[in-house]
């Protein structure tokens, strides 16, 4: 019973973070803030949802498989976000603050 309540809380908060990630992806102004929003979905939401699901198993093989999935996702998705942001930086994309700075310099 306690486990079930705990798992429900974890699942709902995971769903909440997925939703905020999705909203951020649409609402944020530039590429880097958007990557940040998307990586929230990748990391915290997956941790919450998968740990919520583990609490709902009988702690057998399924739980171990879920644990493996969690470890894989924790290895791969931050790497993907990092590679994405780094490539954008490498390609010469500036953050909003930097764009503002260069505009101020041009004006001043």
């Amino acid at each position: 019973m306690i486990l079930e309540t705990l798992s429900t809380i974890l699942l709902i908060s995971g769903a909440f973070f997925s939703l905020t990630g999705a909203i951020g992806l649409f609402k944020f102004p530039d590429f880097f803030t958007r990557v940040h929003a998307a990586s929230v979905t990748d990391s915290i939401a997956t941790i919450l949802i998968i740990s919520g699901l583990i609490l709902r198993t009988d702690f057998d093989l399924v739980a171990i498989k879920l644990l493996f999935i969690l470890v894989f996702l924790l290895l791969t998705s931050p790497t993907a976000s990092h590679a994405l942001a780094k490539s954008a930086r490498h390609g010469g994309l500036l953050t909003l603050a930097e764009i503002r700075d260069t505009q101020n310099k041009d004006n001043g």
């Binding site: 894989f72 290895l75 791969t76 790497t79 990092h82 590679a83 780094k86 490539s87």
Partner: peptide, 17 residues
């Protein structure tokens, strides 16, 4: 991808798995 150090390390970890 020479400059992507993180990517290279993680790829080396992941590929055998």
């Amino acid at each position: 991808l020479k400059s992507h150090l993180v990517l290279r390390v993680v790829a080396k970890l992941i590929i055998p798995l």
